[in-house]
Design a binder for these strands. Structure first.
Length: 272
DNA sequence: CACTTGACCTGTCCGC
DNA sequence: TGCGGACAGGTCAAGT
């Protein structure tokens, strides 16, 4: 499910709701989904909620951090009052807070995980070590993007954007959208791009992600924000999931192909 | 090496 | 309606 904008949307929601709450108890329905010692969490207070790439972090008192990776179908839903819909058959982990509100980690496909670690160990996590730059931070530039992309000169550009060491947080939806905004054929090899195309791609990545956040993320099937509401970015998407529609710019039919094993959408007239 | 494919899971949708 | 196969927001590991 979630790429950078979706995780960011959840982060913004949780920041409003759970900072300051105390963890009363913890329930693990799917041991595979949880890494670490859950007993450590008892009585800890939520200090902060943050995001790096597609990972959400919750800092707790006692120098502990909870990390969440939602992978394809994970959801993180905060519920303030009793609700009949929750938990459901996909609820893997439940955090009970002392004010009786709850945080549900649901994950149909069980690819996602929750992990408790010492906060100081975060930089040593292999997952974080490998990550490329955060695309929405000020120090990210088209030159950095170009340099990182050129480490994979013969890879199709859209596949290279998905590489989390090149730029972190971009997934399949926003990679397709970024190529459209840059008007570049996703199949084009990295080493065939000119500077003006790297610049356009940089803008395309930043703009598609920013737009994703603005519309509360993409809800193809699973994604909901922290209070269970869907995001509506896909209504404004140009190509992702639009294989039965026409290009909003030129009217040509949107193509769907497979690149690097992933569904890839583009306009064969606008993107060259 | 660099790049591709399969595996991890569960569920849905599409074609025959 | 039933059944098999392809496919789904991600990332690793193994294979070529």
């Amino acid at each position: 499910m979630p790429e950078l904008p979706e995780v960011e949307t959840i982060k913004l929601g949780l920041q409003k709701r759970i900072v300051g709450l105390k963890i009363l108890s913890f329930q693990i329905n799917s041991p595979k989904s949880f890494i670490g010692d859950p007993d450590l969490l008892q009585g800890k207070k939520v200090l902060n909620v943050w995001r790096r790439a597609k990972v959400l972090g919750i800092d707790l008192s006692g120098n502990l951090t909870l990390l969440f990776h939602l992978k394809m179908s994970g959801q993180l839903i905060w519920v303030g009052d009793m609700q009949e819909e929750m938990p459901n058959k996909h609820t893997r982990v439940i955090i009970n807070f002392s004010d009786e509100s709850k945080l549900y980690f649901n994950d149909q496909r069980r690819f996602g995980w929750v992990k408790v670690i010492e906060s100081l160990q975060i930089p040593n996590e292999s997952f974080f070590k490998k990550l490329g730059p955060e695309p929405l931070e000020e120090n990210f530039s088209w030159q950095i993007l170009k340099t990182n992309l050129l480490k994979h000169p013969k890879t199709p550009i859209k596949v290279a954007i998905l590489d989390q060491t090149v730029v972190s947080g971009v997934g399949n939806i926003y990679a397709c959208e970024a190529c459209f905004l840059a008007q570049i054929d996703p199949r084009k090899k990295v080493n065939s791009l000119e500077d003006k195309e790297f610049k356009a791609l940089f803008k395309g990545i930043v703009n598609s992600l920013t737009s994703g956040i603005k519309y509360g993320g993409s809800s193809k099937t699973h994604f909901v924000e922290a209070e269970g509401k869907k995001g509506f970015f896909l209504r404004f998407a140009f190509v992702y999931g639009k294989e039965k529609s026409s290009c909003k710019k030129c009217g040509n039919k949107i193509q769907k192909i497979k690149l690097g094993g992933r569904g890839t959408y583009f306009c064969s007239i606008c993107q060259v």
